[in-house]
């Protein structure tokens, strides 16, 4: 089995609610896959089933070919996780926490010492190694959480919104750590709402809504196949309400949003030809366009379009 993660018909139901509906997808080894979807799409439930935090109603999930449901001990041995924002035992220090979790993985004292130094250095928590975690900030805990996920050098790391609740600096630091893991060849499966980060870091994305997989594949291919681009527009003069309405109603335009009296962004369905036509149409409406450029939010456009279609 060449896939790091294989999911076959995975289903989770809560009474009348189908949280995950026969989900089938694979994550290849050494790939960084972003797992996207709105709140309630089923991402966290899927991740919980993959990490033994929740029991599947039906279906199978394999980590490196080992069934998580029937053989969780061996399946989880080569896995590192950060799910939600985990809390730590407040009476333990990062050193002790990593020793505890390392021992459970079968690491020797020597290995634990070596790896603890390495991973705490990676997440920039070395100077806090001997302080009890009880009073750590959320960002510090999140960094220790990432450290424990990679302590035992697993081949697969599953992360559920690892930057959730962090301040901009914390987000930046976590992003740096993740890029480092990517360079080191980890297989990473990460749910996130940070679409720009996903577009920047991930090799592939999987989009989910209402418990079902909408689309998955390499980021560039998906964006290209969606035949959609995000455009930022600025005009020389203030735009009237009528003009705005006419732009929003143009055939190739979707997800129109204005920012102030002279700026708006829109998603355009089509390629270069459609973009050139749009510019002409806007001139026809009477807009004096001074800025007309493609923004880097292509994944966001694709995401919004797919989510809208699946409602």
């Amino acid at each position: 089995m060449s896939n790091a993660i294989e999911i076959e018909g995975l289903t989770k139901t809560y009474e009348d609610l189908v949280a995950v509906d026969s989900l089938t997808m694979n994550v290849e080894k050494n790939r960084f896959v972003g797992f996207l979807g709105p709140n309630g799409a089923g991402k966290s439930t899927t991740i919980k089933m993959l990490t033994n935090l929740s029991n599947a109603t039906a279906g199978k999930a394999y980590l490196n070919g080992i069934d998580v449901v029937t053989d969780p001990k061996n399946a989880l041995s080569d896995l590192g996780t950060v799910v939600e924002t985990p809390e730590f035992y407040p009476y333990l220090t990062p050193n002790e926490t990593l020793a505890y979790l390392g021992e459970l993985h079968g690491m020797t004292d020597r290995d634990i010492k070596r790896r603890t130094t390495e991973v705490l250095d990676t997440v920039k928590m070395s100077e806090w190694a001997s302080k009890r975690i009880g009073k750590f900030s959320k960002g510090m805990k999140q960094r220790v959480a990432i450290a424990q996920a990679i302590l035992h050098e697993p081949s697969i790391v599953i992360l559920d919104e690892p930057t959730s609740g962090l301040d901009p600096r914390g987000i930046f630091e976590v992003r740096e750590v993740l890029l480092g893991l990517k360079d080191d060849g980890y297989t990473i499966f990460m749910s996130s709402h940070m679409l720009n980060d996903v577009q920047e870091m991930c090799d592939e994305v999987a989009l989910m809504n209402r418990g079902q997989l909408l689309k998955s594949g390499p980021v560039d291919e998906l964006i290209a196949s969606a035949n959609m681009r995000r455009l930022e527009v600025r005009t020389a003069r203030e735009i009237t309400e009528t003009q705005l309405n006419r732009v929003a109603q143009l055939n190739a335009v979707s997800d129109f949003e204005s920012f102030g009296p002279r700026d708006f962004v829109l998603s355009l369905i089509g390629g270069d030809e459609a973009q050139a036509n749009l510019l002409e149409d806007m001139r026809g409406i009477g807009l004096k366009v001074v800025n007309f450029k493609e923004s880097g939010d292509s994944l966001e456009s694709l995401y919004m379009s797919l989510i809208k279609d699946s409602r």
Binding site: N52, L53, E87, F88, L101, L104
Partner: peptide, 12 residues
């Protein structure tokens, strides 16, 4: 919420 840390470990 310490279970998020402990339960995904390879321990029955």
């Amino acid at each position: 919420r310490t279970g998020y840390l402990l339960f995904p470990k390879p321990v029955k």
